[in-house]
Amino acid sequence: MDLRLDRLGVAIGGARIIRDLTLEAPSGTVLGLIGPNGSGKTTALRSVYRSLRPDSGAVWTGDRDLWKLPRREAALTVAAVTQQHRAHLDFTVAEIVAMGRHPHHRHGGRLGEAERRLCREAMERVDVAHLADRGALTLSGGEMQRVLVARALVQQPRVLVLDEPTNHLDLKHQLGLLSLIAGSDLTVLTVLHDLNLAAAVCDRIAVLSEGDLVAVGKPDEVLTAELLKTVFGVDGEVVPHPRTGRPQILFSIPEPATTEGTR
């Protein structure tokens, strides 16, 4: 199912966060959202998983207006891994993953055998099966992040929304998660801070700056030295990956600005 943000506008407390944002992710593709802090990436995601109602525009999945669906229906279509994820109570990992089945049950009820198997498989896919009986509050940030991905998977959505999913993850699990995303048939909308990972996994990348869409396209079309300079304010060289040919960015740490000058 494709995902389309149609002239979306969101203001929080009178401050305009995003303006007239139109984006499209065809079915089964990965759309990356990049941009500096405060550019509106998370806000755009929140309006997709129905945490923040847009003032104007709409979010479409296929021919359905997401904000006009019953909440439960929307949650059957879109699952999210958000940044706000500190648990308050010490649920076990298995219990947190099982919560992903919530929208599938109209009136609570126990999980069936097939659902329990689904949960086990999801935990195995993100390498947290060995933690199933552990309390969530004893997990590291990276372990918790993977648990939340498992919860989103058992929700069996058609669209997956991820807010910096590689946050806290070690290198092995970053690559593992991205390969899972790339290999799935879900339509994925993800915010990524690491531009090299974004280039490696995204089919298309959209660049936000101060609430405006400034570029969108294939990674090699979007990720240019000029964009790094104008949007992110950094200098970098863009080179093709020796094996995959995808763009990779090489940064050099800028010389510290000295107050005494060079005289």
Partner: peptide, 15 residues
């Protein structure tokens, strides 16, 4: 259960 996970999680689970 869902409410105790926070508002963001609740929204994403359809609550």
């Amino acid at each position: 259960d869902v409410l105790s996970m926070g508002e963001e999680t609740a929204s994403s689970l359809g609550v």
